[in-house]
Every structure is written in structure tokens, then in C-alpha cells.
């Protein structure tokens, strides 16, 4: 599998990571190398094999749907790079 520059740019955009143009070629090479390496999985017969969802043989626990914790607005916001009046501040998204 070989990825071209345009595909890498598209993946980077999907992942919301800015990648400088001059790094795309090198990155495409590295990612292609990794994808080529993982392609050996095609050799394995996985007919009727269930995809693993959990290594532990357990079902997820359930609990009552009720409020058990909370009331930490200031603590939650304390690490925000920009906050105001009890909210996170984001760049303007509506005109």
C-alpha cells in the first residue's frame, strides 16, 4: 500500500493536525512503509472469527441512571486556556 501526498494531506485534515507541506512527502513514505508492514495480516484465515471487542470475558456493568457526582464547574474549567463567565471561549463559529 502506498499513500500519496494528497491522501496524507486529507488524513491530516481528518485528524485535525496541521502538517507543513514540506513534510508531506516524508510522512507519506513512513506511513506507506507501516501500511505495507501490516498488510501481512491478509495471510491469516479469519473466516468466521469474531473481531475482538474485549480481552476480559466480562459484560459491561450497569448502574442506575442517576446523578452520582458533579458540581465542579470551576474545577472543570480551571485548565481551560481561555474561559469566561463559566464557559470555554472558542473562536467565532457563526457570523
Amino acid at each position: 500500500m502506498s499513500l500519496d501526498k494528497a491522501t496524507v494531506a486529507k488524513i491530516a485534515h481528518l485528524a485535525r493536525i496541521k502538517v507543513p507541506d514540506d513534510e508531506l512527502d516524508h510522512l507519506a513514505g513512513e506511513l506507506s512503509q507501516i501500511l505495507t508492514f501490516v498488510e501481512q495480516l491478509g495471510e491469516v484465515d479469519t473466516q468466521d472469527v469474531p473481531p475482538m471487542t474485549s480481552v476480559a470475558a466480562q459484560t459491561l456493568r450497569r448502574r442506575k441512571d442517576e446523578v452520582t457526582d458533579g458540581g465542579y464547574r470551576d474545577a472543570v474549567l480551571s485548565n481551560g486556556p481561555e474561559t469566561a463567565e463559566g464557559f470555554y471561549v472558542v473562536p467565532k463559529v457563526v457570523e
Binding site: 485534515h13 485535525r16 485548565n79 481551560g80 486556556p81 481561555e82 472558542v90 473562536p91 467565532k92
Partner: peptide
């Protein structure tokens, strides 16, 4: 938005990237 580094951008998407 919630913690750590923030590098500003012209739009929300730019800021993320």
C-alpha cells in the same frame, strides 16, 4: 479548549489544526 496548549487560528477548525 479544555486543557493544555492552544495555538490560535482564524477559525475554530484552524485553531484545532
Amino acid at each position: 479548549l479544555r486543557y493544555g496548549l492552544r495555538v490560535e487560528g482564524a477559525s475554530l477548525k484552524d485553531m484545532y489544526e
